[in-house]
Write a protein that binds this DNA or RNA. Structure first.
Length: 466
RNA sequence: UCCCCAGUAGCUCAGCUGGUUAGAGCGGGUGACUGUUAAUCACUAGGUCCGCGGUUCGAGUCCGUGCUGGGGAGCCA
């Protein structure tokens, strides 16, 4: 028995008059005493549900079909016909409806054909993909992920699966989750009373990765163009709509390029992904525009057409301090840009995506390339209207003596990074890369405002349900 | 972690300056009706008003405290 996807059935495939079988979950049932029921069934293949017309002469019409409620799983066989009603072009005239799975107690089934709050749906994260919103998010997330892989693949990048477990404990990107098999109640101790991680699984302290960047640089300096796309973990006590303890990050790394080359990639990349979603998810995007964020469609379309503004940090500070705006935090040289500053630049001043480049050395990481005068490093942030920073990246310091001096200044353990420094010893080249939070990208695309709603099972401080 | 806000039926919410028996819509059940579109109409069931303590003749309402959730900030992607 071959199964027709609802997406195809709604498009009249394989053909009118064909006998087809669809499988899915009931959204709504409407009865007509005149002799049939309408059952809306969805299977995740597209935004819309398929209308199944169930005639009263089905052998289980009174006993089963009329007892269907939201959430029941069904297997429907019938003839694909042009719809006799409005609202859809095609429907199924059923001659067999099997109930695969009942809803045990319809009174307590949490997903109803009505608007639920996102807060409530987070409590039923295992059932929320059955809603319009989360179905649409799931499809968009998939299409965006595919677009990311395709963008890089078409341009000769290799996808590098950097390790999830790492021994690097000071990449400077944030607090880390410990990975250990030691007995937490009675850990082995060294003579000085400290926990003896030499006894641990890996024979040393290990953590979940906060970034694949350092690892991917090694592959960059061999494969030329590479990227990571995988889970990333931060043990920070961040309670905001923009932070997760577990999220997915995209990190391209390009050899033989500089900061300007990187900015080119970042701009092409974002436009490519947005364009793909616009092309491949029109129904889902129409839904987001209608129900989630009225500007969702327009701002993506504008973004794809927009000319990115590029300016130095120094220039950004000048614009901010001459703006006459009252900011809660000062905008002065040496301080990082605040959310309010980023929003002013993108939403008020330029009204376009902005790439801010060359930040003060003191506020950026050790691996970023030092300018000749030492005041700045070759870092960039891509700021998007409505969300702020969406990409952060830099040209890497490829000169061994310079990076060693910086590590000394910051009192980093060079021994620990010896393999990383090897990359500067053996055939070093200028290279650059950036990091992009995948869920923040999905937030921007869909207009969803809480990052917990664009990942299937969110992990945040104090919560790891499901 | 800090600052604000909220918690009332399965869900979304109303409930006035404290005052009889706490309401509506949706969802569920029963029935009517209809090629219906989150159908419509009638009836019906459904409540530890987040927990604890206090003020008061009287608390869903006021105060304290705890818990949970949300928004904002910081950290950052």
């Amino acid at each position: 028995m071959s199964i027709t996807r609802i997406k195809d059935a709604l498009a009249g495939k394989p053909t009118i008059g064909a006998e087809i079988t669809i499988q899915g979950w009931v959204r709504t049932r409407r009865d007509s005493k005149a002799g049939f029921s309408f059952i809306n069934v969805h299977d995740g293949s597209c935004f819309d549900a398929l209308q199944v017309v169930a005639p009263a002469d089905l052998e289980n019409y009174e006993t089963e079909v009329k007892k269907l409620t939201s959430g029941c799983a069904v297997n429907c066989t019938g003839t694909l016909v042009e719809s006799g009603g409005r609202g859809q072009n095609f429907e199924i005239q059923a001659d067999k409806i099997d109930i695969v799975g009942w809803v045990e107690d319809p009174d307590t089934y949490p997903i109803q054909p009505k608007a639920h709050s996102f807060e409530f749906l987070r409590e039923v994260a295992h059932l929320r993909p059955r809603t319009n919103t989360f179905g649409a998010i799931t499809r968009v997330r998939h299409v965006a992920a595919q677009a990311i892989h395709r963008f890089f693949h078409e341009r000769g990048y290799y996808w590098i699966n950097t390790p999830i477990i790492t021994a690097s404990d000071a990449e400077g990107a944030g607090d880390m989750f410990r990975v250990s098999t030691l007995d937490m109640v009675n850990p082995p101790l060294k003579d000085n009373g400290q926990v003896d991680f030499g006894e641990d699984f890996f024979g040393r302290e290990t953590f979940l990765t906060v970034s694949g960047q350092l690892n991917v640089e090694g592959y960059c300096l061999a494969m030329s163009k590479v990227y990571t796309f995988g889970p990333t973990f931060r043990a920070e006590n961040s309670n905001t709509s923009r932070h997760l303890a577990e999220f997915w990050m995209v990190e391209p790394e390009i050899a033989f390029t500089d900061l300007d080359g990187l900015a080119d990639v970042a701009e092409d990349f974002l436009k490519y992904v947005f364009k793909t979603v616009l092309d491949e998810c029109p129904d889902d995007m129409a839904f987001f525009e209608k129900r989630i964020e009225p500007d969702a469609l327009k701002r993506l379309e504008k973004f794809v057409e927009a000319e990115f503004v590029r300016l130095d940090y120094e220039e950004a500070i000048r614009i901010l301090s001459e703006s006459g705006q009252k900011f809660e935090f000062p905008a002065e040289w040496g301080l990082d840009l605040q959310t309010e500053h980023e929003r002013y630049l993108t939403e008020t001043h330029f009204k376009a995506p902005v790439v801010v480049m060359n930040y003060p050395t003191e506020i950026k990481a050790f691996y970023m390339r030092l300018s000749d005068d030492g005041r700045t490093v070759a870092a960039l942030d891509v700021l998007a209207p409505g969300i702020g920073e969406i990409i952060g990246g830099s040209q890497r310091e490829e000169r061994l003596d310079v990076i060693e001096r910086r590590m000394d200044d910051l009192e980093l353990d060079k021994e620990h990074y010896s393999w990383y420094l090897d990359l500067r010893r053996y055939g070093t080249v200028p290279h650059a890369g950036f990091g992009l939070g995948f869920e923040r990208l999905i937030n921007y695309i869909t207009g969803m405002t809480n990052i917990r709603d664009v990942i299937p099972y969110p992990r945040v401080p104090g919560k790891a349900d499901f």
